[in-house]
Design a protein around this nucleic acid. Structure first.
Lengths: 181, 181
DNA sequence: AGGTGCAGTGCAACTAGTTGCATAGGTAGG
DNA sequence: CCTACCTATGCAACTAGTTGCACTGCACCT
């Protein structure tokens, strides 16, 4: 019961179709709450039946018709209710750490290459975040309300990726000097 | 297909029962690969059927009998196979960020209290990690093999929690000065 | 002419994970 | 004495999430 709320937040920011929501989950909100288009479509239907959202079918030329969803009064109520209740701590599932922990049972240099690969991916994501930060929040001192909150979430992403990259560097250095003592 | 591998890593470090594994997942490996006892029991059975592990029933006095699992040759083979293949990037699901992003749609001060609560929890976890670090790895310069890898995973935990706590502090400060401008 | 990719929704079948409960004896505390 | 917790395993029913596929029509590239 929480993809619902991520969708409510996103739809409150702007109404949209399932497809559009899936794009947003790919580019922004999905960085901290991932979801596939399938899951989104399914949950949207459930939310529609529960009355949290309404939809309008929009006929389009040259491309398929779409259903634009918007948050209803009941949805806004549910969202404020959820915002006031405690939320469980973040869940992390990191296969790389499992691998590292078992590295000595296999080919350590393959694990090292994996860490290097992940380092590159996370460094890329960090650049994406920093790009958004430069473009959308060039003067972060004067923000408030929704803009401030979006900025703060982005800051979390930047910090997390910086920390991940730094960890990768530490691991890479340690594994390299282990291989050539 | 990855809880299997986390279990293989843990059972290779030391054989144990489902219950013992569940304890370990609560205290160490579960910090980056969470699992409930139910899931562990189910997967253990599947791994047993697949021949990756074997079990011996141990009769005990005063407490229930237990099944001690150990990794078989096929299990070790599977583990080395998995260690050599690429692993998907870590998945994070952070409800607090969703909340923060939607904070202006509800009671912002309730969200602030939530951030403070999470800060305290993560600071506590950080202390746990640092305690393990002091106790188990007082001289990290001379480690290698399994010990080094375990230490590096722990370092990842320390870094992640430090970063999370620092982010919470940034958020708390920003939300406070937003409320009293 | 043929392939790829985007926009758009969705079904079917699957795997993974959660929650609640059951059982049972021992141990510790109020 | 009663409650609560620990050790130990597990069933049943549920919710969540993944993977693979289908269909339409346009645009773009080769």
């Amino acid at each position: 019961m929480a993809l619902e709320h991520a969708i409510l937040v996103s739809l409150t920011e702007r109404a949209g179709s399932g497809y559009e929501l899936a794009r947003r989950f790919d580019r922004s909100i999905g960085y901290f709450w991932p979801a596939t288009h399938q899951q989104i479509y399914r949950v949207l239907r459930r939310m529609d039946e529960a009355g949290w959202v309404t939809h309008t079918e929009i006929a389009q030329e040259g491309r398929p018709d779409k259903k634009v969803y918007r948050v209803s009064a009941a949805g806004r109520e549910e969202l404020t209710r959820w915002l006031a209740e405690p939320v469980e701590p973040a869940v992390l599932r990191d296969g790389l750490s499992v691998k590292l922990r078992g590295a000595s049972l296999g080919d350590t240099s393959a694990v090292l290459r994996e860490v290097e690969r992940h380092r590159a991916e996370h460094a890329g994501l960090l650049e994406v975040y920093r790009g958004i930060q430069r473009r959308d929040f060039p003067k972060p001192d004067r923000l408030n309300g929704r803009q401030l909150h979006q900025y703060l979430v982005l800051r979390g992403g930047v910090r997390a990726e910086e920390s991940f990259v730094a960890w990768c560097d530490e691991v890479i250095q340690a594994l390299r000097s282990e291989r050539t003592p």
